[in-house]
């Protein structure tokens, strides 16, 4: 066997777990923030002496838990504000590039302070591609759970959506969204962009009571994914995904296939949430480096490469039957 060494694969194959940890953390943050807010305003509005006994107990509990970290939890918890759409983290303001582009389109003006807050995300996207979609996006957390649900439903013998559409639709959605934003003078993309909706809706539901239209929209996208097309919204419709894909087209860090190690098992294609074709080196600009294909690869045939373009199709994997047949056929002809 002329298998190629893949030195760090033992690390790469666990990145998918790390990704889930990150996704869970981001989502937990979005859920925790409104509770923190409620706690802060409640403590602020009620003198300690006037609290009911059980309220005092809760207050004391939080105080004890946070004592090693901070003197005044109500104040220091302010370190994180906002959501993944736009937020402040220890004084550093970060904004989703789509928010900036959307605002530029709606106002037909450039507001530099906001543009600057998107600088870090844009830089990271240029380097790492559409990583936001796989590693950060709070909607991804729910969408991937939704995919798992679909798998369970199929095991029960139910039929879930397996349609495929053209992946270029989302660029149309992005373009159309921006044109309509400019025409109507409101940042429309924010109304159809799940991560923006989720942050807003969770906060609203917890802190102020009640869900809005955004939740309805999000549930519809979940049903679309479940009943029509697997991960359909992200694959075919998400304007943010489109923008990130374009930004990450010439990303530096890429997952690539080592053809010598590949046995054509196609698990990578089956697991790819974005419907890409790792088996035939079809990563393209829409790969979000989520590393799911690395996690399932049984022959250590996936690795990270630093290069601006994907490898062209390398043909069937050298451990696979097809390659051997080709080779055998070649020998016969010779």
């Amino acid at each position: 066997m002329n298998q190629k060494a893949n030195r760090w694969f033992f690390l790469w194959r666990h990145l998918n777990k790390l990704r889930w940890v990150v996704l869970s953390l981001v989502f937990t943050m979005l859920v925790a923030l409104p509770f923190v807010y409620v706690y802060q305003t409640y403590v602020a509005a009620h003198a300690y002496d006037l609290l009911a006994p059980d309220e005092k107990r809760l207050y004391d509990l939080v105080e004890t838990l946070t004592a090693p970290l901070t003197d005044d939890p109500a104040e220091d918890l302010d370190a994180i504000k906002g959501n993944t759409w736009s937020g402040t983290f220890w004084g550093l303001q970060l904004t989703d590039p789509l928010a900036v582009v959307g605002q530029m389109a709606a106002a037909l003006e450039v507001w530099w302070p906001l543009v600057l807050t998107a600088l870090i995300p844009v830089l990271l996207t240029v380097l790492f591609g559409r990583f936001y979609c796989g590693w950060i996006c709070p909607a991804t957390f729910l969408y991937e759970l939704n995919t798992n649900l679909a798998v369970w439903l199929r095991r029960l013998g139910l039929r879930t959506g397996r349609r495929r559409f053209d992946r270029r639709i989302k660029y149309l959605v992005l373009g159309l969204g921006l044109v309509l934003s400019a025409a109507t003078g409101a940042v429309l993309v924010a109304a159809i962009y799940p991560p923006a909706i989720i942050g807003r809706e969770i906060f609203y539901a917890v802190a102020l009571g009640g869900f809005g239209a955004g939740s309805v929209f999000f549930v519809i996208t979940l049903l679309f994914d479940l009943l029509v097309a697997r991960r359909g919204f992200c694959r075919y419709l998400c304007p943010g995904g489109a923008l990130y894909s374009l930004l990450g087209r010439y990303r530096l860090l890429r997952i690539q296939r080592i053809v010598e190690n590949c046995n054509d098992c196609a698990k990578c294609n089956a697991v790819c949430e974005f419907g890409l074709d790792p088996l035939r080196d079809g990563f393209g600009q829409e790969c979000n480096n989520c590393t799911a294909c690395m996690a399932v690869c049984p022959t250590e045939a996936m690795t990270f490469r630093i290069r601006f373009r994907d490898q062209p199709d390398q043909g069937p994997g050298h451990l696979g039957r097809l390659y051997r047949k080709q080779q055998g056929g070649g020998r016969e002809a010779a």
């Binding site: 923030l33 807010y37 906002g82 928010a99 709606a106 507001w111 940042v187 802190a207």
Partner: peptide, 11 residues
Amino acid sequence: AACIKCGQCVQ
């Protein structure tokens, strides 16, 4: 046109 609906003012 300017508001991106992030909800930070609410928070």
